[in-house]
Simulated scan of single mutants.
Amino acid sequence: MRVAIAGAGAVGRSIARELVRSEHDVMLIERKLEHVEQESVPEATWVHADACELSSLEAASLETYEVVIAATGDDKANLVLSLLAKTEFGVSRVVARVNDPRNEWLFDESWGVDVAVSTPRMLASLVEEAVSVGDLVRLMTLRQGQANLVEVTLPDNTPLAGKPVRKLQLPRDAALVTILRGGRVIVPQQDDPLEGGDELLFVASVDVEDDLRTAVGLS
């Protein structure tokens, strides 16, 4: 897969290294010359350019990349790049970094963003996930905010204990993805029994989260 990353700071370089390890074709676009450190990710293609300039993106042949990651430290730049990537170059997948949580509402399909990644939001979700039992915790937003990856840890005294997965009366736009039990990752089957302490991961639309709480006995 060909992936273009705008912003070659610590975040952009780290993403590039991970993608290179997975044998993806990576291009790093960096506006500041002092941040162009080819030796830090020698396997990547480096471009010294402003990712917000249409001519620079044309010269970099952005239309040949399947994924664009807007990972600069400037939310305005990330939004502009996302919009250009989607509307001018037809990039199929645009992932954008949100630096200021107050700007998170802007990072949606109207700006060409498929997935918005907010580090403060993710850290807060991980903290909640670590300490919350018997509540629904959002871990990640998917598909331009239309659905979320959510987690529920069943309390030890859950009324669902011993019942098979098929007994879960899930709302229409919710799906059980996996069950985490101790060190095990379980792909749920209809006859698998639920247990107290299970961590259930769902993909669900925002509109049905209250119904999902009811289905797992939280309300």
Rank of each mutant, 00 (worst) to 15 (best):
D198K: 04
W105D: 08
V80R: 06
N157E: 10
L136P: 01
S22K: 14
A6Y: 09
P188N: 04
A124T: 14
M27K: 12
A49D: 02
A175H: 11
C52N: 13
I69M: 04
S110G: 07
D75K: 09
E104G: 07
V203Q: 06
L142H: 00
Q144P: 01
D50A: 10
A77G: 14
S14V: 02
A175K: 10
W105T: 06
E199I: 14
P120L: 05
L201A: 05
I186R: 12
L62I: 12
A204C: 06
L106Y: 14
V185R: 15
R138L: 09
L19S: 07
P164A: 00
E209M: 13
D198C: 03
V127E: 12
Q144C: 07
L194I: 10
L28A: 04
E151W: 00
R2H: 10
V91Y: 03
R93E: 06
M1R: 11
I69A: 01
A44N: 10
L83N: 14
A85M: 10
H35T: 03
E104V: 08
A204S: 15
E109G: 00
D156W: 02
T214E: 13
P164Q: 01
Q189L: 13
Q144W: 00
A116E: 10
L106H: 09
D135C: 07
L154M: 08
K167P: 00
D25K: 06
D50T: 06
Q190P: 05
L212E: 02
L194D: 08
E128K: 14
S55A: 15
N99E: 12
